[in-house]
Each structure stands twice: as structure tokens, then as C-alpha cells.
Amino acid sequence: MLAHEFIRNALLAGTFTALACGLVGYFVVLRAQVFAGDALSHVAFTGALAAAAAGVDTRIGLFAGTVLLGVVIAGLGERARPDDVAIGVVFAWILGLGLFFLGLYAANGGGNGLLGARALFGSIFGLSPSDARLAAAIGLGVVATCLLVARPLLFSSLDPAIAAARGVPVRGLGVLFLALLGVVAAEATQAVGALLLLGLLAAPAGAAMRITPNPYRALALSAALAVLATWAGLALSYAVPTVPPSSAVIAVAVGGYGLTWLLTVRRPGAISAAT
């Protein structure tokens, strides 16, 4: 399996993307901002298509779109925690806008919707070596940033009022976090696609929280589970070629969450124990 170059590229990009998703995903679930992650992942679709319609590199559109919307969403709510109705309206419109760009791109002779499908569902087996290295570098950057702000971010996520009183820049951290989430969304869009990214954000983190109440252990576990799910999914997709890699990764991640749920269903709440 490792003899193929496309597999090595997929593993390199996938591992670091999953690491970033697992770490950031833990905070996403802890802060109950999965919906914001959902919105940002859909914006990735619009960003990619807008860039394609304008004729620039899709990655520029991806990162610009998601980071910009991350900051906008942060500005919509108190303490950079937006309410879900505002997110819903904004991103319903952004999706419509993506559809508009899709039409524009197709009208300019851009092809038969293959790009749309790739933006929505990812194409990790189609990465070139330089794509993979870039994805790994960005993933590493996200991981480093996340670990750097982990402590204050944890504090401000669990108890914003007390964190603010102790001088933690709660609002700034909220904006930074959503911008980081935007970077992750753009990054993961290339690997698993805009529509499936949410599985890598939510499922490993949800499982990790059910297993341990200790936030640092859960953080590490979440990242480890995401990486494992990616490896297992890629291997599964390699063994059964009709299963697309992104579907396999998500199925393994959500399957693991389901299993954890069944095993820990009788335990008392992990999050409330941590606070």
C-alpha cells in the first residue's frame, strides 16, 4: 500500500489535517460551536467556487473565504459566541452564493461540475506531493497555534466570566479561535471535502469527551482518534476501491463515536465533572 505515491501523499496530508481537526474539534465541541464549524465548512465550498469562477488558485478562495467568515461570525455575537439563528441565515445565503458561482463557472466553460464535486466531497487521493507537503505544513501550524493558546482558551471556554475577570482576553481568543477554525475548514476541504469535514471535527472530540473528563487528556485523545480514523479510512478505501476515501474516513470516525457512546452510556456527565 505504501509503495504508491498517491497513498503516501494522502497519508502525509491526512495525518496532519486530522491532527488539526482533532485538536480544534475538541474546543469546538467544548464551546458548543459545532454549528459554526458546519457553517465554515460550507463556506469553503463557496470560496473554492468563487476562486474558480475568478480564475485564481482555489486554495486562495478557500482560505480567504473561511477565515473571513470566521471573523464575521465572531463579530455577530456577544463575546465572539454568535447565536445560531444568525449563523444559519448567513450561511444559507453563502451557500446560495456558492451556487451562483457554480453557475458562473459552468457558464464560462469551466466543465461539468467535477470541481464542485471535488470541493464538496474532497479528493485526497488526487493530491500532488507539493499539495501534500503544503497541507502538512498548514496542519502543523494550526496544531502549534492551538497548543500555544490551549490553556487560556480552555479557561475562557469553560467559564468566560471568571476568565475575563482574571484578565484573559476572552473576546480576542474567541475571534482567534473562529479564524483558526476557518483555516482548519479550508485545509480539510482538500482532504475530506466541505460537506464531510464536520465528522472529523465533531466525532473524535465527542468520543474523547465521553472517555475522559480531564481536558488535556481528552484533547490528546481527540487528536489521536482523528488520526486513527483517517488512517483506517484510507486503508479501507484502498482495500475496497468502490468506497470513496472521505466516506470511509467519516464512517470510521462516527462509528468509533457510536461505539464509545454505547460503552459509556451509563456514566455520569464528563463535561460537568470537568468544570
Binding site: A32, G37, D38, L198, A251, V254, Y257, G258, I271
Partner: peptide
């Protein structure tokens, strides 16, 4: 009992699956 974080994690996982 685990609050909205857990609930939204489940919703997100179901959606992705």
C-alpha cells in the same frame, strides 16, 4: 446532562455520516 456541547457533537456526527 452533558449540555449542548455533547448534543451538537452528536448532531454533527449524524450529519457527517
Amino acid at each position: 446532562a452533558r449540555g449542548r456541547g455533547e448534543e451538537s457533537a452528536v448532531t454533527g456526527a449524524v450529519q457527517a455520516l
